[in-house]
Protein backbone atom coordinates (compact mmCIF):
# COMPACT_ATOMS: atom_id res chain seq x y z
CA UNK A 1 0.00 0.00 0.00
CA UNK A 2 1.35 3.40 -0.94
CA UNK A 3 -0.21 5.23 1.97
CA UNK A 4 1.25 4.53 5.38
CA UNK A 5 -1.25 6.00 7.81
CA UNK A 6 1.25 6.31 10.63
CA UNK A 7 3.45 8.35 8.36
CA UNK A 8 0.45 10.41 7.31
CA UNK A 9 -0.34 11.22 10.92
CA UNK A 10 3.31 11.92 11.70
CA UNK A 11 3.67 14.17 8.68
CA UNK A 12 0.48 16.04 9.61
CA UNK A 13 1.83 16.62 13.09
CA UNK A 14 5.22 17.55 11.70
CA UNK A 15 3.62 20.02 9.36
CA UNK A 16 1.56 21.63 12.13
CA UNK A 17 4.69 21.95 14.28
CA UNK A 18 6.47 23.49 11.34
CA UNK A 19 3.58 25.94 10.89
CA UNK A 20 3.84 26.97 14.52
CA UNK A 21 7.65 27.26 14.41
CA UNK A 22 7.68 29.28 11.23
CA UNK A 23 4.95 31.54 12.54
CA UNK A 24 7.05 32.18 15.59
CA UNK A 25 10.46 32.48 13.97
CA UNK A 26 9.75 33.67 10.46
CA UNK A 27 6.44 35.31 9.68
CA UNK A 28 5.88 37.26 12.87
CA UNK A 29 9.41 38.77 13.08
CA UNK A 30 9.50 39.52 9.38
CA UNK A 31 6.04 41.10 9.31
CA UNK A 32 6.82 43.06 12.47
CA UNK A 33 10.12 44.26 11.06
CA UNK A 34 8.43 45.31 7.83
CA UNK A 35 5.67 47.09 9.71
CA UNK A 36 8.20 48.83 11.96
CA UNK A 37 10.25 49.87 8.97
CA UNK A 38 7.18 51.10 7.13
CA UNK A 39 6.17 53.06 10.19
CA UNK A 40 9.64 54.48 10.48
CA UNK A 41 9.75 55.38 6.80
CA UNK A 42 6.29 56.91 7.04
CA UNK A 43 7.41 58.89 10.07
CA UNK A 44 10.55 59.98 8.27
CA UNK A 45 8.54 60.95 5.22
CA UNK A 46 6.12 62.89 7.39
CA UNK A 47 9.08 64.52 9.09
CA UNK A 48 10.62 65.28 5.72
CA UNK A 49 7.33 66.74 4.52
CA UNK A 50 7.14 68.85 7.65
CA UNK A 51 10.71 69.96 7.10
CA UNK A 52 9.94 70.71 3.49
CA UNK A 53 6.86 72.68 4.46
CA UNK A 54 8.94 74.55 7.03
CA UNK A 55 11.61 75.16 4.45
CA UNK A 56 9.00 76.44 2.02
CA UNK A 57 7.56 78.67 4.71
CA UNK A 58 11.04 79.92 5.60
CA UNK A 59 11.78 80.52 1.96
CA UNK A 60 8.53 82.42 1.49
CA UNK A 61 9.24 84.40 4.64
CA UNK A 62 12.73 85.14 3.43
CA UNK A 63 11.47 86.21 0.02
CA UNK A 64 8.85 88.42 1.64
CA UNK A 65 11.49 90.00 3.92
CA UNK A 66 13.79 90.49 1.00
CA UNK A 67 11.02 92.20 -0.96
CA UNK A 68 10.29 94.38 2.05
CA UNK A 69 13.94 95.26 2.41
CA UNK A 70 14.15 96.04 -1.28
CA UNK A 71 11.08 98.25 -1.06
CA UNK A 72 12.49 99.91 2.05
CA UNK A 73 15.81 100.40 0.31
CA UNK A 74 14.10 102.04 -2.66
CA UNK A 75 12.10 104.31 -0.35
CA UNK A 76 15.22 105.21 1.64
CA UNK A 77 17.20 105.83 -1.51
CA UNK A 78 14.47 108.07 -2.89
CA UNK A 79 14.25 109.90 0.41
CA UNK A 80 18.02 110.32 0.50
CA UNK A 81 18.01 111.58 -3.09
CA UNK A 82 15.23 114.02 -2.29
CA UNK A 83 17.02 115.16 0.86
CA UNK A 84 20.22 115.59 -1.08
CA UNK A 85 18.39 117.63 -3.73
CA UNK A 86 16.80 119.82 -1.05
CA UNK A 87 20.15 120.22 0.70
CA UNK A 88 21.78 121.07 -2.61
CA UNK A 89 19.15 123.72 -3.31
CA UNK A 90 19.61 125.10 0.21
CA UNK A 91 23.40 125.24 -0.14
CA UNK A 92 23.09 126.84 -3.58
CA UNK A 93 20.69 129.47 -2.25
CA UNK A 94 23.00 130.13 0.73
CA UNK A 95 25.98 130.42 -1.58
CA UNK A 96 23.98 132.65 -3.91
CA UNK A 97 22.86 134.91 -1.07
CA UNK A 98 26.43 135.00 0.29
CA UNK A 99 27.66 135.91 -3.17
CA UNK A 100 24.96 138.58 -3.42
CA UNK A 101 25.94 139.96 -0.01
CA UNK A 102 29.57 139.98 -1.00
CA UNK A 103 28.78 141.64 -4.29
CA UNK A 104 26.60 144.20 -2.48
CA UNK A 105 29.37 144.91 -0.03
CA UNK A 106 31.84 145.26 -2.82
CA UNK A 107 29.56 147.59 -4.69
CA UNK A 108 28.95 149.57 -1.51
CA UNK A 109 32.66 149.75 -0.89
CA UNK A 110 33.24 150.81 -4.45
CA UNK A 111 30.56 153.46 -4.14
CA UNK A 112 32.11 154.66 -0.88
CA UNK A 113 35.50 154.82 -2.46
CA UNK A 114 33.98 156.56 -5.46
CA UNK A 115 32.21 159.03 -3.21
CA UNK A 116 35.33 159.65 -1.15
CA UNK A 117 37.33 160.12 -4.30
CA UNK A 118 34.69 162.54 -5.57
CA UNK A 119 34.76 164.46 -2.32
CA UNK A 120 38.50 164.55 -2.39
CA UNK A 121 38.54 165.73 -5.99
CA UNK A 122 35.88 168.33 -5.18
CA UNK A 123 37.80 169.56 -2.22
CA UNK A 124 41.11 169.64 -4.00
CA UNK A 125 39.62 171.12 -7.15
CA UNK A 126 37.82 173.83 -5.26
CA UNK A 127 40.91 174.57 -3.22
CA UNK A 128 42.96 174.66 -6.37
CA UNK A 129 40.34 176.75 -8.19
CA UNK A 130 40.14 179.05 -5.25
CA UNK A 131 43.89 179.41 -5.10
CA UNK A 132 44.04 180.06 -8.84
CA UNK A 133 41.11 182.45 -8.69
CA UNK A 134 42.62 184.17 -5.67
CA UNK A 135 45.95 184.57 -7.37
CA UNK A 136 44.31 185.79 -10.56
CA UNK A 137 42.12 188.22 -8.67
CA UNK A 138 45.05 189.42 -6.61
CA UNK A 139 47.20 189.81 -9.67
CA UNK A 140 44.55 191.50 -11.80
CA UNK A 141 42.51 193.67 -9.45
CA UNK A 142 44.91 194.43 -6.74
CA UNK A 143 42.43 193.74 -4.03
CA UNK A 144 41.84 190.76 -1.90
CA UNK A 145 39.54 188.01 -3.03
CA UNK A 146 37.57 188.33 0.12
CA UNK A 147 36.80 191.96 -0.69
CA UNK A 148 35.73 191.04 -4.17
CA UNK A 149 33.53 188.25 -2.94
CA UNK A 150 31.95 190.48 -0.37
CA UNK A 151 31.30 192.98 -3.12
CA UNK A 152 29.68 190.35 -5.29
CA UNK A 153 27.64 189.14 -2.34
CA UNK A 154 26.46 192.66 -1.59
CA UNK A 155 25.65 193.10 -5.27
CA UNK A 156 23.56 189.96 -5.19
CA UNK A 157 21.72 191.11 -2.13
CA UNK A 158 20.74 194.15 -4.10
CA UNK A 159 19.52 192.04 -6.97
CA UNK A 160 17.26 189.90 -4.79
CA UNK A 161 13.64 189.29 -5.72
CA UNK A 162 11.14 191.75 -4.20
CA UNK A 163 9.34 188.99 -2.29
CA UNK A 164 12.56 187.70 -0.90
CA UNK A 165 13.59 191.20 0.11
CA UNK A 166 10.24 191.55 1.85
CA UNK A 167 10.65 188.40 3.78
CA UNK A 168 14.19 189.35 4.68
CA UNK A 169 12.95 192.68 6.01
CA UNK A 170 10.52 190.85 8.29
CA UNK A 171 13.19 188.57 9.73
CA UNK A 172 14.21 189.07 13.35
CA UNK A 173 17.54 187.33 13.13
CA UNK A 174 20.03 186.91 10.33
CA UNK A 175 22.90 184.45 10.32
CA UNK A 176 25.87 185.07 8.07
CA UNK A 177 28.34 182.28 7.50
CA UNK A 178 31.63 183.04 5.88
CA UNK A 179 35.00 181.48 5.59
CA UNK A 180 37.14 184.55 5.64
CA UNK A 181 38.37 187.16 8.06
CA UNK A 182 36.53 189.82 10.08
CA UNK A 183 37.76 192.63 7.90
CA UNK A 184 34.88 192.35 5.45
CA UNK A 185 32.28 191.83 8.14
CA UNK A 186 31.39 195.50 8.53
CA UNK A 187 30.86 195.94 4.79
CA UNK A 188 28.51 192.93 4.67
CA UNK A 189 26.78 194.04 7.86
CA UNK A 190 26.14 197.49 6.37
CA UNK A 191 24.70 195.98 3.23
CA UNK A 192 22.36 193.74 5.28
CA UNK A 193 21.31 196.62 7.48
CA UNK A 194 19.96 198.33 4.44
CA UNK A 195 17.57 195.43 3.92
CA UNK A 196 16.57 194.40 7.42
CA UNK A 197 16.70 195.66 10.94
CA UNK A 198 17.18 192.20 12.32
CA UNK A 199 20.00 191.11 14.58
CA UNK A 200 23.02 189.97 12.59
CA UNK A 201 25.17 187.07 13.75
CA UNK A 202 28.40 186.03 12.13
CA UNK A 203 29.77 182.55 12.03
CA UNK A 204 33.05 181.43 10.53
CA UNK A 205 33.00 178.08 8.65
CA UNK A 206 36.26 177.16 6.98
CA UNK A 207 34.45 174.26 5.14
CA UNK A 208 32.81 176.82 2.90
CA UNK A 209 36.30 177.42 1.40
CA UNK A 210 35.24 180.63 -0.19
CA UNK A 211 31.83 182.14 -0.11
CA UNK A 212 29.15 183.72 1.98
CA UNK A 213 25.84 182.19 3.14
CA UNK A 214 22.94 184.24 4.54
CA UNK A 215 20.21 182.43 6.43
CA UNK A 216 17.15 184.41 7.51
CA UNK A 217 13.53 183.59 8.00
CA UNK A 218 13.80 180.26 6.28
CA UNK A 219 15.70 181.71 3.32
CA UNK A 220 19.21 180.94 2.32
CA UNK A 221 21.20 183.19 0.03
CA UNK A 222 24.43 181.63 -1.09
CA UNK A 223 27.35 182.82 -3.09
CA UNK A 224 30.31 180.57 -3.02
CA UNK A 225 32.83 178.78 -5.14
CA UNK A 226 30.47 175.79 -4.81
CA UNK A 227 28.47 177.02 -7.81
CA UNK A 228 31.50 176.74 -9.97
CA UNK A 229 32.70 173.70 -8.22
CA UNK A 230 29.43 171.89 -8.84
CA UNK A 231 30.00 172.26 -12.58
CA UNK A 232 33.52 170.99 -12.16
CA UNK A 233 32.28 168.18 -9.99
CA UNK A 234 29.76 167.09 -12.60
CA UNK A 235 32.40 167.03 -15.23
CA UNK A 236 34.77 165.09 -13.02
CA UNK A 237 32.07 162.59 -12.07
CA UNK A 238 31.24 162.05 -15.74
CA UNK A 239 34.90 161.46 -16.34
CA UNK A 240 35.10 159.02 -13.43
CA UNK A 241 32.05 157.12 -14.63
CA UNK A 242 33.53 156.80 -18.02
CA UNK A 243 36.81 155.57 -16.63
CA UNK A 244 35.55 152.25 -15.05
CA UNK A 245 33.52 151.56 -18.22
CA UNK A 246 36.66 152.00 -20.24
CA UNK A 247 38.59 149.76 -17.88
CA UNK A 248 35.96 147.02 -18.07
CA UNK A 249 36.45 146.90 -21.79
Amino acid sequence: MLIDWFTVAAQAVNFLILVWLLKRFLYAPIINAIDAREKRIAAELAHAETMQAEAHASMADYARKQAELEAERIVLLKQATDDAAVERQRLISIARSDADDLRGKQQEQLQNEYRQLGDEISRKASAEAFAIAKKILCDLADESLEERMAAVFIQRLGMLDINVQQQLANATQVLVRSAFAQTERSTIEDAIRKLTPAEINFEVMPELINGIVLIAHGHKIVWSVADYLSTLENEVSTLLKMQPAGESK
Partner: peptide
Protein backbone atom coordinates in the same frame (compact mmCIF):
# COMPACT_ATOMS: atom_id res chain seq x y z
CA UNK B 1 9.70 11.47 8.54
CA UNK B 2 13.44 11.77 8.98
CA UNK B 3 13.80 13.91 5.85
CA UNK B 4 10.85 16.05 6.98
CA UNK B 5 12.56 16.63 10.31
CA UNK B 6 15.74 17.63 8.54
CA UNK B 7 13.76 20.04 6.41
CA UNK B 8 12.05 21.44 9.49
CA UNK B 9 15.37 21.95 11.22
CA UNK B 10 16.79 23.58 8.12
CA UNK B 11 13.83 25.95 7.69
CA UNK B 12 13.52 26.92 11.34
CA UNK B 13 17.26 27.29 11.87
CA UNK B 14 17.56 29.39 8.74
CA UNK B 15 14.61 31.57 9.76
CA UNK B 16 15.96 31.92 13.29
CA UNK B 17 19.42 32.77 12.04
CA UNK B 18 18.17 35.50 9.73
CA UNK B 19 15.59 36.95 12.08
CA UNK B 20 17.72 36.89 15.23
CA UNK B 21 18.67 40.53 14.83
CA UNK B 22 16.15 42.13 12.58
CA UNK B 23 16.39 45.85 12.38
CA UNK B 24 13.97 48.49 11.33
CA UNK B 25 16.78 50.36 9.65
CA UNK B 26 16.31 51.40 6.06
Amino acid sequence: IATTWLLMILLVAGAKHVTRNLGNEV
